[in-house]
Each structure stands twice: as C-alpha cells, then as structure tokens.
Write a protein that binds this DNA or RNA. Structure first.
Lengths: 163, 163
DNA sequence: GTCCCTATACTCGGATAGCAAGTGTCCGAGTATAGGCGG
DNA sequence: CCGCCTATACTCGGACACTTGCTATCCGAGTATAGGGAC
C-alpha cells in the first residue's frame, strides 16, 4: 500500500507546467533540473502522461511539454491514475470460493463483502483526489511561496520557458 | 498504488476467526486449508497480526490463533495497517526544496500543498476503513451465505475448531 | 487406583531463497532551426 | 538582397540493466498432551 516515488515527481511537474503561460512549453531536461531529479526516468513518466492525454509533447528544438488541457480540467486523480494505472489498490482473488466450502458458482451471487468494503474506501479516496483540480493546487502553492523562491523561480522561468 | 495480496488473505482469516466461539482457537494450518493458500506464508502475516495486538497465538498442541479483541473493536483499517505498515501511501520527498529555486529552510514553513492534498485523500480512505468493523463484515457475509456453503462451513468448523 | 514423570508430536517463531515490479539508464527516430549557397 | 536547400543539434520515443520489496519456503524453539511407570 505504497505508491511509487514517480507520482510525486509527476505531480510537481504538472504544477510547474500549469504555471507557464498559454502555448509555452518546457523541455523535460528543464523539468528534471527544476526538481533535481533523473531526466531519463522522468521522461518515462512524461510519456505515460502524454499517452493518457494529460500532457502534450512538442518534438524538435524549441519543443518540450505543456498541459493538454486547462489546469481547471485536470484533477489530481487523473495524474495519479495515469502514472500508477487505474486498477484498484485492493484486488479480490475470490478466495472465499476456494477450500473445503467451495460450491457451485451460483452460490456466490452476492459480491464479496470484503471486496465491497475495500472498494468503498477507495471510492472515498478517489473522490477526494478527483475534487481537487490542478489549478487549485497551483493557487495554494502560489500563495505560500516565499519572496525569495518566487524571485528565483521567475528568473529560471524566463530563462527556460519557450514560447 | 496496489497493495499486497496478503491483505486479502488476512482479512478473510480475520472473518473466520471472528466466527468461532469465545475462547476457541484455530491453527494456522486450518486457516490456510480453509482458503486453499500457502500455510508457510500465511504464518508470516499472522505473526504480524499478533505483533500488532489483533490476533493472539496459543502455542503447543490444541493451540492456534484467535482474535485478541472482540470483533466490534477491530476495524478493517487496523488489519490493513498491521499487514501493510502504517506509513502513508504517498511519501513526500520535499523535492520542492531542490533545484535552482532552493532557498533557506525558513522559506518553506508552509507544508507542501501536494503532500497535504494527498494525505487528505488518504484520510478519507482511512476513515472509511476505520468506520467498518470486523463484526459488520461477518454480519454481511453471514447474511449472504448460501445454504450449501453454510452447511459445509459448519461441518468443517466442528472438525477443526478447538476449545 | 492415583500421582508423577518422560517422551512425543504438534504448535508458533525467525532466518533464508526466489521472483516481479518499480527504478534508473541508454541509444535511436523525428523535426524545427540556423547557416550557407545560389539566383 | 531574397529565397531555397542542407546539415545540424536538439527534442521525444522505445528498448535494455539494476535494485528494492513482496512472495514463498524451510528449519528451529517452545509447550500441552498422552502414555507409562512407580507408589
């Protein structure tokens, strides 16, 4: 019950992409440098993001990544599922149907109570993430940014953002 | 974002233990046979369950496992955390503090917005699991049990349960 | 007949291999640019 | 001076090793029991 470290990378990268002006792009090398993470591995995640239709990639020089939709239309759940896969965390193997009490399939018409409870919990988790948009996160980050970090980021952006 | 298969095993075993009369125990071999799963590996999980204070183990012949508390006082969250560990699924590495915008620690007094949002979601998940007791699950399972399965289970219980 | 002792067999407990998935890295395909050349 | 062509260098994309953690297993320590023997 622990998710990959790449989720954190992707979420942070999404907030960076959300902060740049319309139409502008940022190469993967810049995204990796901004958080001081492995560029090669980040590319793998960015590719998954592109396949999911969340990010858009522009090839060639002056190319890079940008959000495929407006930040308001992207939820944290979208990003998490794109990286980790959309399968539920709890997978029911139906072991209740095994062993000495095994009976005909018709005896198990009701869904597994444990399976139902676990998926109920995951539904709450997903609902919480789905209700939080990327724009909301960037807003909060923008508000809590110190003057020093804000200034450094502005300098870095003007040097790396490509129209 | 997927939890181990052993969680399912442990949850089902907990429902079985919850079904047996007060003071009675069930050896690990019987629990493994009931669900047709590996006994050796199940023992590992049962040990974790005992260490967490959820199950109690009785050594020697006529020994086995039983619940350490009443089923009403055990939640699904207790079991899941005992098996998977109580660390949050999302771990914040604070990568926001890395890279070209890095500043003094005092500049990051506010908690990471992404971290907060992810933990908020996990809190919903945990709350859902914490609000479901083991007794509630056994009740639901008991209601949905077919006559055939119920009869087989009763026979198996009288043969394996130890006072 | 009763009590005690001993050997037994069964239980759980921890330490040890195997495997899958996440992690990290590399090289190749494609494209807009920048410079040079010709008109 | 202007337009076209070519070489370039940069981008993303997919295929290949490595490490961590889950999965699976085995052997050893401990204990209540069952049987036998002595009183």
């Amino acid at each position: 019950m622990k998710m990959g470290e790449s989720v954190e990378w992707t979420l942070h990268c999404a907030t960076v992409l959300a902060a740049l002006p319309d139409g502008a792009v940022l190469p993967a090398s810049a995204l990796a440098e901004f958080h001081d993470i492995s560029e090669s591995y980040l590319l793998k995640q960015l590719r998954a993001m592109t396949a999911a239709g969340l990010f858009a990639s522009i090839p060639g020089p002056k190319g890079g990544y940008r959000l495929a939709r407006q930040p308001e239309a992207i939820s944290l759940l979208d990003i998490v599922l794109a990286v980790e896969g959309d399968e539920p965390a709890f997978r029911c193997s139906e072991i209740r149907k095994c062993g000495p009490t095994a009976s005909s399939p018709s005896a198990y018409s009701a869904t597994c109570a444990i399976h139902a409870a676990m998926w109920n919990a995951e539904r709450s988790w997903r609902a919480s993430l789905a209700s939080t948009s990327l724009s909301e996160i960037t807003r909060r980050i923008g508000r809590s940014l110190s003057a020093e970090v804000r200034a450094k980021a502005q300098v870095w952006f003007t040097a790396n953002v490509r129209a």
